[in-house]
Design a binder for these strands. Structure first.
Length: 360
DNA sequence: AACTTCGGCAACCGCCGTCAT
DNA sequence: GATGACGGCGGTTGCCGAAGT
């Protein structure tokens, strides 16, 4: 026989908290603490709430030193970096941001930051910002840029990255020539949603605008094994956004980088809870791991460690069911992590290779 | 002005590991 | 050891105000 039930589910109030309830909870906890027992707390405090609900309300809203409002650039950067390395482990990320709650960060990510990164935030910005000489956190090569790209206009930096603007007078084609080191979370940039490309239809096409730049490129999912065009000897990976031409359901950024050897893996949410197995959270965060002002923090070392763990864990227990090379596992994981949310959990992993997308 | 759509966010749901019985 | 609640977490929902038509 286990413990007694925590509360009478039928008699607990749900929904938004009233100011009176807030006051009661706050006063009680400030006087007596939680006592390490949330279930018993509401009754003692005279609240008709479930203990879980009280805990949530306290942690996310009432407890002291909660920070509300705008996230700073530095906070953006920390969130992005950690998300890129450990995924949606909001509680760990929140631990690095004093005053922020996991719920807050999660909401911020889902509603703003993700869009910001994926280039949806500023439709007027017609430019892509991609790191040129930037050393990716996960890049183990100093000899090549993870991304080669062309854009007709100068790129604009996004505050979270601190990267310098960049420009090239080249066609509106974005190329990735070393996907092994490509981190999609580094693909921050406001190209504007009307400017995204994807290879996903059944026919390849490219419509040119009057200035000769390519304004739309599309490749068929059915022909996914067909390589996107190479320019200047660089293999292209391409992007297309259905949104502008179809419907809102496609507004979300599509990421899909499956294996190309017919692995036919099926992405099943239940196979992976978005956690990267093998990562020791405590180890990750202990030893003062954090962010220093000069950007050369101990965290960078920790990220390398995380990277290795990701690499190792991806071999068999991460649920990706991918048979691509280990060097691509990180990329796969990141993209799939994105796709698990961005593709509305339609997780069929076709036997195709990749689709990628961007132009400006 | 009325209606619809969108976006932000608080809160709930359900899963999972831990712990009490 | 088995059972089932607790605590914590991430994903999702639904409300509500803002923006758009």
């Amino acid at each position: 026989m286990g413990r007694a039930p925590c509360c009478d589910k039928a008699n607990v109030k749900k929904g938004p908290w009233s100011p009176e309830e807030d006051a009661k909870l706050k006063e009680f906890i400030e006087k007596f603490g939680t006592g390490g027992n949330w279930i018993a707390l509401p009754q003692k405090a005279g609240l008709k709430r479930c203990g879980k609900s009280c805990r949530l309300r306290w942690l996310n809203y009432l407890r002291p030193n909660i920070k509300h409002g705008e996230f700073s650039d530095e906070e953006d950067r920390i969130i992005c970096t950690l998300y890129a390395s450990i995924g949606s482990r909001w509680s760990i990320i929140a631990a690095q941001l004093p005053g922020r709650t996991d719920n807050d960060i999660k909401n911020y990510w889902n509603t703003k930051l993700k869009k910001k990164l994926m280039g949806f935030i500023n439709p007027l910005d017609q430019r892509i910002k991609l790191p040129h000489h930037h050393q990716y956190p996960f890049s183990n090569s100093s000899s090549s840029n993870a991304i080669q790209y062309f854009t007709t206009s100068s790129a604009k930096s996004l505050s979270t990255t601190g990267l310098e603007p960049f420009s090239l007078d080249q066609p509106n084609m974005l190329l990735f020539n070393n996907l092994d080191n490509f981190n999609p979370m580094q693909l921050y940039y406001p190209s504007g949603k009307d400017n995204m490309l994807m290879f996903g239809g059944t026919e390849a096409s490219c419509s040119n605008s009057s200035d000769g730049s390519c304004s739309q490129i599309s490749y068929g999912r059915d022909q996914i094994k067909q390589e996107p065009p190479a320019i200047n000897g660089l293999q292209g990976y391409n992007i297309y956004d259905h949104h502008h031409h179809h419907h809102q359901e496609n507004q979300k950024f599509v990421l899909d980088y499956g294996n190309d050897n017919g692995g036919g893996g099926t992405w099943n949410k239940n196979n992976n809870n978005n956690h990267i197995k093998g990562i020791d959270d405590e180890k990750l965060l202990q030893n003062g791991a954090g962010f220093s002002s000069n950007g050369t923090s101990q965290l960078e070392y920790e990220l390398e460690e995380v990277k290795q763990l990701i690499s190792c864990s991806s071999a068999g227990n991460n649920g990706f069911n991918s048979s691509s090379s280990s060097s691509s596992n990180l990329l796969n994981m990141m993209m799939m992590r994105s796709s698990i949310t961005d593709e509305n959990k339609t997780n069929e992993r076709g036997a195709g290779s990749s689709m990628y997308y961007y132009y400006s």
